[in-house]
Design a protein around this nucleic acid. Structure first.
Lengths: 232, 232
DNA sequence: GTCGTTTTCGACTATATCGTCAAAAACGAC
DNA sequence: GTCGTTTTTGACGATATAGTCGAAAACGAC
């Protein structure tokens, strides 16, 4: 506890992992996370054991418990991480877009591009969502998902002049998020050969058109006096 | 093995569970299935133990193994059963409809109505789908899901004159099935108070409109000469 | 009632997993 | 090199679960 505090060097924005020890520790932790990601996609969240993870990562079992409190803690951290990355990708992809249909399309596009190269992360998220429906699931998984939905809501909200109610906004977000993951989840079990992403790409126009209409109707319904001009 | 073969009575389509013994056995089996349904929705497929099920059903552990080979066998049977019921509900709901938008709407409606009163079955199906994505999941779960997709395809195919390719048909099916379950799965974690079904009901118009457009485009693309009149 | 069959039971064995902990190894500062 | 700290290790005890099996109960036919 005497803590040889390696002082944060001023003038160095991101000191590349300071000491050798810190580098090694970080690497071990990363090895564990990546091993878990792989095993989770093979056996699923529940059936994966700590031994599975440590063996895959090629570290001792105790090491896992040094870095994480439990499997639940690891899952929480991973889920949060992936969804935050997804949100970041969405923001980047939708930057500067204020046209609603284009935004919706970009939103779906961001999902496709994000998960295309990260199948394991898609499985992770899907498993997490399945878990959320259970009465006795892992704790603390709701927050990352709700933050993710909120991010979608904000993007949509930013692209319409007249604002929708929170309720309708949430509906849109659920529709976008649900459609992408739902479509994916069925496509992978039935699509032979052809690229799932290409297929989804061709369908997203359908959802965009539908949602745009829905939003248009919702706005005019909420905005009864009709005085404000809605700009799409 | 001497088997007192109780001959199938002719003239009696469904002899109401013949002997007392058969009635009792059937009841026990049913108790197990219903107990499993409840526990699965609480703890999930993987974390549910045989003891959980037998305790809930209030039968001895050995009884489970008398009726089912394993938990996997039970899951397979339940999944098949639920999806077949869903397909039946779809057929009933869509009977006689040959107008495409109406059919798509009824299809979604059938899902909503089906799962509205059967939350546990929705969870069961969702868990099953999550499992399908794993490399080492339960065996034999693909078939019921594929049959279910096929049923959607046939209904859609029956409502359009010019036929779509198998590929496009499958896409539609995935989109319908994926949207409904995807939307649901997000809505339940974020919708407070208001009825999830009502919400989905209001959104389905969006998907129907989008899909109708998609199908229309797909048909005209496949049917290049354009000689055949497409009747919606 | 008897007898043979089907069904149910729960104790039991074997195995798997969790989470702990004392010891060892790696490290950093000197 | 020494010394104190951080990190890693794997054996260990406690617990939980799967699946088996012999015995018992329920049943049906008589």
């Amino acid at each position: 506890m005497i803590a040889t505090v390696t002082v944060e060097r001023s003038g160095r924005a991101k000191p590349p992992l300071r000491s050798r020890q810190q580098r090694r520790t970080g690497a071990t932790r990363l090895k564990l996370v990546e091993a878990a990601r792989a095993v989770f996609a093979e056996r699923g969240l529940d059936l994966t054991t700590i031994d599975d993870i440590t063996e895959r990562a090629d570290v001792g079992k105790g090491t896992f418990y040094y870095h994480f409190k439990s499997k639940e803690g690891l899952i929480r951290e991973m889920m949060k991480g992936v969804l935050e990355e997804l949100v970041a990708a969405m923001h980047k992809r939708c930057e500067g877009i204020d046209d609603l249909p284009t935004l919706l399309d970009s939103l779906i596009g961001a999902h496709i591009e994000f998960f295309a190269a990260r199948w394991e992360d898609f499985v992770l998220c899907f498993q997490g969502r399945a878990d959320l429906q259970l009465q006795e699931g892992y704790r603390g998984l709701e927050t990352p998902f709700i933050d993710y939905l909120k991010a979608i809501e904000e993007l949509v909200d930013g692209s319409i002049k007249r604002h929708l109610s929170d309720r309708d906004l949430r509906r849109i977000a659920c529709a976008v998020a649900g459609f992408v993951s739902g479509y994916y989840s069925f496509a992978v079990i039935s699509t032979q050969g052809e690229d799932v992403d290409d297929v989804l790409r061709s369908l997203r126009g359908a959802l965009v058109a539908g949602l745009t209409r829905f939003i248009k109707e919702a706005v005019s319904a909420e905005d009864k006096d009709g005085s404000a001009r809605i700009v799409w």
